[in-house]
Design a protein around this nucleic acid. Structure first.
Lengths: 250, 250
DNA sequence: CGCCGTTTTGAGTGCGCTCAATGTTCGTGG
DNA sequence: CCACGAACATTGAGCGCACTCAAAACGGCG
């Protein structure tokens, strides 16, 4: 069924729309010459839709494609032998999923839509073939993968050295800047993920996340009701994230 | 001075030695056809030596090259604004350093030799050029970077969910398998890094690392005197790392 | 309305941190 | 060759942050 949809869209006028995509300054087209965009569009399968909770791909199934988020949001997680889940990332529109799977024949994690989500699919074989021909695209892939390593190192750092408040402040600021990049409000947004996912991602208990949210609220730093969040004092949040480094340097 | 050495070696018989390198099954040559090895050797600068404590590159200096460890070992770390250090990885012979810097113009971390260390240097411009021509090499680069992302995710997982004992057991087993890969003893080796580095890497206090080492020793799982380590009961160590998942699944 | 999943709030405990002191290893110079 | 100091490692005592366990409040949906 998904195939049928894909085929129909591949031959529809929708196909060649990286040109008009509002995310082309974040996504793969970023580094590409105008006239090379067509070759990228030839390999991409656009506009696949997933409902909340649906899996875009599953850990340990054959690795075929990377996916760029067009709208909505995605959570990636690893399931351990013991059945425990570890959330490895949240992906917003313009961001590329699946880079951690390029070292094996099967997906290294599971990607699940947090809300109604549209993605573009890049079959990895064709993508590799294309990056071999377009040095700028290859460079961009290296760039993205390297960025992913850095992000993960940042996360490891957050997890190993920072308090619950610092971790949550950092996440809120990260989300804020990612919303802003899309020309959306950086101070007033709706969290796509549940408290549980935040807790898992940040290595905390759900209860701790909840407590920190209310603490921030009592301090007048944020206003939160459910998933609706308003950052009232961004500077204060930044202070929180740097609190640790301050103590360390004194 | 380093340049002079490099130049001399580049024109010496030492130059073309990826062929004979005992690590070629771990390093970049891995995925390359025999006759393509020459092009790789054309760009690599082999045999640069660093003494214990010397920096191979420094965070925030211009990013020029990736480095493969030939012998010895390397520690990479990030220095935060506050001056705090976060160890992001340990690199053993055959492993590639600098992949996390390919998204920017400057190194994302500092690489320091933990002992007398020899590295091969791959200027990134030439490397990118070459991977554009050799699909297998490009694939291998994707593979390595993806692996690096996965490693970092593993680390994040360890840091967010596991106890001190589990983290240290995991590190010991990781080192063990990496020694074994080089046909060295997997049960009897010498730690290249100080307790301090282990603690920092694993998000623990030095004292905790020390305590866990003695605890393991009292349990007869390992024998440790200073940096000399002997794994007496590998299965027990594996049990420790899985302990968490077990509880989770029950 | 009543149910279920999610979020919040409360009470008590424990792991790993901090602070402090002692022990060990190693390089350096007397 | 040994004495000395600096860096590294170990051990102990006490404390605090975040976890666990438990229960109540909220919100969405049939």
């Amino acid at each position: 069924m998904a195939q049928a949809i894909r085929l129909r869209q591949a031959s529809s006028p929708l196909k060649a729309s990286c040109h008009q995509c509002s995310l082309s300054n974040l996504c793969l087209p970023l580094a590409i010459e105008e006239n090379d965009l067509d070759s990228l569009e030839d390999i991409v399968q656009q506009g696949r839709i997933f409902n909340r909770g649906e899996h875009i791909f599953d850990q340990s199934t054959p690795f075929r494609s990377c996916f760029a988020v067009r709208s909505g949001s995605v959570k990636t997680s690893i399931i351990t032998e013991g059945g425990e889940e570890q959330v490895t990332g949240f992906f917003m529109p313009g961001e590329l999923i699946g880079l951690d799977s390029m070292s094996s024949d099967s997906y290294a994690c599971t990607a699940k839509a947090l809300e109604r989500t549209s993605v573009c699919e890049f079959p990895v074989e064709k993508l590799e073939e294309l990056t071999g021909k377009l040095p700028d695209l290859q460079h961009h892939m290296y760039h993205l993968m390297s960025q992913e390593i850095q992000n993960s190192h940042q996360l490891a750092m957050l997890l190993s050295k920072n308090t619950a408040e610092e971790r949550i402040a950092a996440l809120l600021l990260s989300l804020s800047s990612r919303f802003q990049r899309r020309r959306m409000s950086g101070t007033n947004f709706s969290l796509p993920m549940a408290r549980n996912d935040i807790a898992n991602f940040l290595g905390l208990a759900v209860e701790t996340v909840s407590r920190v949210f209310t603490r921030f609220q009592n301090q007048g730093i944020i206003k939160a009701r459910g998933r609706e969040v308003e950052l009232l004092d961004v500077e204060a949040l930044q202070m929180v994230t740097r609190e640790f480094s301050r103590q360390g340097s004194q």
